[in-house]
């Protein structure tokens, strides 16, 4: 599935466990299709809006569909079904109907697909109530959160960074049990600053924190894992303790980071604790260009993260 082949094996296990799971995509994994047949594993034409709408209807009728959109940019094609329908039917029906479905897609990679097809649009879906938004930061979490998604009672948008495919530990990742939503991972511990890292940026953020630690600067690194529901309590507790906050994300600054920040500022004590000591290492709010030297400016790097943490540390208390 997508760019991360290990997820196919997760799906095979979950398909065995839950006969209500079905799969729709222009490109469905051959092994899944062989094992579970073309009834449950469907190949569709390039009809993303229809696939997503069919998933809504199937979910309301007792199935648990997975639509693989392939690229996160194609989420733009299915906004109506996701936002006006999948995310609203439970509310609109006064709780009569649940819409348990999963829409998967791959976010930005280093393939120079250009301004249209290199996107991390998960921030957009943090303001569309009713949709859970999952962005795993490791291969293990990618597997565990996909399992979690197959147990969630409503619609889930699952965004996976192609970068995770380079991580090792395949069998441990596959063995991980379902992860509940709304629990951040606390990856590094320290009082100097809180680094909130998302998706494909989690590894580089942890690496930067290790390098900073070697220089005596110990940071908290938190990966929210699910943006909706968000583990505000864990993030807020860290920020209240460190008084400094740096966001690291492959996506645009006005997307998930801005939204998480606004949620945190609502938490008692956070605004006072953090003052103005807030930093961002994200894609700027511009599209991702194709040319490699331009694209390079769009990635969070270890150097940029260290510099931003140091800048925030230099801000007065």
């Amino acid at each position: 599935m997508n760019e991360v082949g290990l997820l196919d094996l997760v799906l095979e296990e979950e398909f065995t466990r839950d006969p209500n799971l079905v799969f729709l995509a222009t490109n469905s994994p051959a092994s899944l299709r062989r094992r579970f047949g073309s009834d449950r594993v469907r190949i569709c034409p390039i009809s993303e809006q229809a696939m997503t709408g069919m998933a809504v209807g199937a979910a309301m009728s007792g199935l648990r569909p997975i639509v693989d959109l392939n690229r996160a940019s194609f989420a733009m094609l299915v906004m109506d079904q996701l936002v006006n329908h999948a995310g609203r039917m439970h509310y609109l029906s006064g709780g009569q109907y649940r819409v348990p479905m999963i829409v998967t897609s791959a976010t930005r990679g280093r393939q120079q697909l250009g301004p249209q097809n290199e996107q991390c649009p998960y921030g957009i879906f943090m303001q569309t109530p009713g949709l859970a938004v999952v962005v795993p930061g490791s291969l293990r979490d990618a597997c565990a959160l996909l399992r979690g998604a197959t147990r969630w009672p409503g619609p889930v948008l699952y965004f996976v960074a192609p970068e995770l495919n380079r991580q090792r530990g395949l069998s441990a990742a596959l063995a991980a049990g379902p992860l509940p939503f709304g629990e951040a991972a606390h990856l590094r511990h320290g009082d100097a600053a809180t680094i909130v890292a998302i998706g494909g940026a989690v590894k580089v953020a942890a690496d930067a924190a290790d390098a900073l630690a070697a220089d005596g600067v110990h940071c908290d690194v938190l990966d929210p894992r699910t943006l909706v529901p968000l583990d505000t309590a864990a993030l807020a507790a860290s920020v209240r303790r460190t008084g400094r906050l740096v966001f690291v994300d492959d996506g645009p600054r006005s997307g998930a980071p801005a939204q998480i920040l606004s949620r945190l500022l609502d938490e008692p004590g956070v605004a006072v604790a953090v003052g103005g000591r807030i930093g961002f290492v994200c894609q700027p709010d511009v599209p991702v260009p194709s040319s490699p030297p331009l694209e390079e400016a769009m990635w969070p790097t270890e150097g940029r993260i260290r510099a931003e943490v140091q800048r925030v540390l230099g801000e007065p208390e």
């Binding site: 120079q112 250009g114 301004p115 249209q116 599209p287 260009p289 194709s290 040319s291 331009l294």
Partner: peptide
Amino acid sequence: CGGKAAAL
């Protein structure tokens, strides 16, 4: 397109 587009 100044390198922004590649093939697009």
